[in-house]
Design a protein around this nucleic acid. Sequence first.
DNA 1: ACATTTGTTAACCATTTGGTTAAACTCTAT
DNA 2: ATAGAGTTTAACCAAATGGTTAACAAATGT
Lengths: 202, 202
Amino acid sequence: MKIEKSTEEKILAAAKKVFVLKGMSGARMQDIADEAGINKALLHYYFRSKENLFEMIFLETAQKFFPKINYLFESDMPLFEKIEHICEEYVTMLSENPYMPLFILNAINEDPENFMDKIWNTSGLPEPHKFLEQIEEEVKKGTIKKISPVHLLINILSLCVFPFVGKAMIQSINGLDELQYRNVMIQRKKEVPKFIIDSIKK
Amino acid sequence: MKIEKSTEEKILAAAKKVFVLKGMSGARMQDIADEAGINKALLHYYFRSKENLFEMIFLETAQKFFPKINYLFESDMPLFEKIEHICEEYVTMLSENPYMPLFILNAINEDPENFMDKIWNTSGLPEPHKFLEQIEEEVKKGTIKKISPVHLLINILSLCVFPFVGKAMIQSINGLDELQYRNVMIQRKKEVPKFIIDSIKK
DNA sequence: ACATTTGTTAACCATTTGGTTAAACTCTAT
DNA sequence: ATAGAGTTTAACCAAATGGTTAACAAATGT
């Protein structure tokens, strides 16, 4: 009944775990091999180098994250509904992969051009125009308060993503154990869009 | 007229630059020595080990960041004024050290207990109670909308800090060059508190 | 002037680390 | 059975890396 994972899958899973936890330079090939329960040479048999393996993991991971940003830009729901959907989806996805954002942001930070290019190439260029214009329009129509579209976009991302990047710090400051933290994140699925909409609605 | 920096200062400055840019495991002792223009052995003469040097830098850096959080909790301005002050100070300070937050969050993430303990020991335990209670009170008085204090605190931190953690990503998504990015951050000194207050005021 | 402490360096060392090799094992097609 | 391809391993290698040593230079006190 138990389906054996192929060696390649075992490696990818192990590499993801180790890279996400320790970053590119902190991760050791031996750690990954151990985690996967295989010989170190096999890593190089399947993936030529550490750099290569890292890139695989990075792209696979980033492709979960970024398409949702594009979706945010491109879908054409009404604004409030769109904000609600996106926040909920984002926080849900990040709750399941709490260490993902810090991992991705570090990778981007290490070599912004390289990694951003790779993201755009594999998951499509982001088109913020549409979203920014939609906000601009709502402002003109007078449906929402006057607000700079760029700032609103940054605010949405900040409120969704930061609690995961700063997980350890937030837990420590508020004295939250793992379970309490997780509960707070569940609440945020509703709290964040409410907070945003409260701020911009008239 | 030019005052020579002492070797120790040169090392600390160089170490900060390298560590903040590459993180603990990415930084090389040789890089730090080169950056400081001295021999590698001197690093070990002044600071026993890499770990030691890293901790020095981390603490010095963290002590710029965390006292302001405590201040947020402890000062007793009226709520809106407090929020305005803090956001402005925070964003100003981070604008001058844009790579600081990612560095600190990574260090904490690597060993949460160790580093948080050291922060509390060197810059005083944070007392969120007061701030959380103040919010609770304003809610009861009916001055502001009903909102969970913990979420409001997380929101404030998110809106102030994330734009720096995600600098590279935000620049890339919005197509901002260095100057434009810096301008957006200047705007945020007013935009962020406005956004928050708009959300909670009745 | 000289002895002692403090600061600095080049050369060195042990370990770690990413990567390679050659042999062995497994599986499948003939 | 067996040839051959694909898979896996132990042993190995070269480079990088944190750290040490011993000698030398600069300052400091007497």
